[in-house]
């Protein structure tokens, strides 16, 4: 494991580069195929509305995967990730138009956990259309 960020170089409050991840219907179909999660709420508008959703919604696990990229891009080595957890608070609604939706991810170092293990806790803020879509979104990474 070879994280490209040194433990000594970060402090609580250190911000990771923020990113925006666009998501459209084609992306959801592709994710359904790759992940094996074919729940129709992620690709069938008629079905989604029948079960009370405003429209097709992204897979929660897709949003979780995108949010992780802010952390793994920062560490360089995705293998530096020790723990990762989220709460699915609100769905990412993906309309059938040219734009689709956008997942916005910001993250910062919340605390340094262990000087020996060189682990830090990262807190993530994940929103779409101005609404928080993931809560309690935290990662623990081992730095160099």
């Amino acid at each position: 494991m070879t994280a490209q960020v040194a433990y000594a170089d970060v402090e609580p409050g250190t911000e990771l580069p923020s990113r925006s991840f666009p998501v459209d219907r084609a992306r959801l179909v592709r994710y359904a195929g790759a992940s094996g999660d074919f729940n129709p709420i992620h690709w069938n508008e008629r079905f989604a509305k029948d079960v009370g959703l405003p429209d097709v919604i992204a897979h929660g696990m897709f949003t979780m995967a995108e949010a992780a990229r802010v952390v793994t891009d920062w560490t360089g080595d995705p293998g530096a990730l020790v723990e990762y957890g989220v709460r699915f608070t609100k769905p990412v609604v993906v309309p059938d138009d040219e734009e689709g939706a956008v997942i916005e991810v910001a993250a910062k170092v919340a605390k340094k956990l262990d000087d020996e293990e060189r682990t830090v806790q990262i807190d993530l803020t994940v929103t779409s259309a101005g609404t928080k879509v993931l809560g309690m979104s935290r990662a623990v990474v081992r730095l160099a």
Binding site: V82, E83, Y84, G85, V86, F88
Partner: peptide, 9 residues
Amino acid sequence: VHGDQRFVY
């Protein structure tokens, strides 16, 4: 529905 998800590696 999926409430929380957590991984320890």
